[in-house]
Write a protein that binds this DNA or RNA. Sequence first.
DNA 1: GTCCAGGCATGCA
DNA 2: TGCATGCATGGA
Length: 274
Amino acid sequence: MHEIFGENYIILKNAACFNLELTLDCGQAFRWTQQPDGSWSGVADGKYLNIQEKDGDFILTGTNKTDYEQFWRQYFDLERDYAGICETLKQDALLRQTIDDYYGIRILQQDSWEALCTFVISQNNNIKRIRGIIDRLCRNYGAKIREDYYTFPTPQQLKACTAADFYTLGAGYRAAYLESLVKDVAGGRIDLKKIRQLPLEEARNELLTLHGVGVKVADCALLFGFGFLEAFPLDVWMKRVMTHYPDGLPACFKGYEGIAQQYLFHWARNHLQK
DNA sequence: GTCCAGGCATGCA
DNA sequence: TGCATGCATGGA
């Protein structure tokens, strides 16, 4: 990959295995929206970004070189060899076809706190409604950084909220989980930064001490928000996929189970009957 | 009207 | 590595 830094834009040339729609709208992040011109706008780490693909290049606007180098490059996981990983994963027959069909899904390196909240909200819920609840959460408690764009609220910004406040946002019965989650993180009972340093099993066990966090929510948070690419979340769709792997996961998934999972999740939602 | 969604806590056996 | 049930909400 080659990076060109202009006055008000950044161009990425030869970025391999990177499809914007598949990556930004595949159920791992819920705050990116496609614009009428086909580009994608969103907020992460309190920063706005617009990104579009043009003739195989990726054009980033609304940001600067510093923010790109200190945040967005890692967020899009651009230094990882996804093309090479995909070649390994394609030793599995089902993934071989799936990766060919949906080539370019990457795992975003999202903020731990945002991922935890997001996947607590996601439980027994559908993607469209998840997006709505998160949008209202940000509009009500985040900081406005430009017209129509808000940051994801920090634990401190949510500290005064009660379950009733989250209920008002449409969170339903998950409102109580959110109140408890804010309390545990803002109050310091649980340290999200420390969890990043733990082995997968220990990290998961820490998250499981949170009210409203079970194995599936924990694994999604670990994969999308704590950098654990070996996490393999099993939701209702992935449980259907697992009938294709009666003997367990293939050896070629090793270390990148989460990337394999995201391809299979996408395949399941497009191909499997309920 | 019923069923379902990137499930979990709770109570019971 | 038990199982059944209730839970808020909105779209299909």
